[in-house]
Amino acid sequence: MVEKIRVRATLNGEPVDFLVAPYVSLLDTLRDELGLTGTKEGCNDGNCGACTVNLDGRIVDSCCVLGAEIDGSAVETIEGMAEPGKLHPLQQAFLEEAALQCGICTPGFLISAKALLDAEPHPSEDRIRFWLAGNLCRCTGYDKIVKAVQKAAESA
């Protein structure tokens, strides 16, 4: 029997202190231990980006990180993106541009796009497409997503 590990971290700006089995991914930790189901599981092997979260200022696939690894770190998930009662400009743009259909990839796209716009407020279309290459969408064909990110960049 492998014992659980104590983890202290910052999650969406709030301190968290929890126990997690050492072999459980950050993705499953968020969803099953911490009750944050906004982060989605797609491929579970680091290809699709559906589980993208921000870890210490960089986007990562949370399926390829252990929950135990975030001790001392700061994690941001989709649940921390909007202020209460108000959508983030990217979320608003995704709605207006119909940049989603089934929605499974959307939290990952939003977290990735936010990291890009936080670092580079006015990226080129090429830059947006390359930055989002680690996020797969099987519904939209990407154009609407790229347009939504451009729109959010313009509105900022």
């Binding site: 980006g49 986007i59 990735s112």
Partner: peptide
């Protein structure tokens, strides 16, 4: 990989 993979 993509940006997410390059972070790790």
């Amino acid at each position: 990989g993509g940006v997410q993979i390059q972070s790790r």
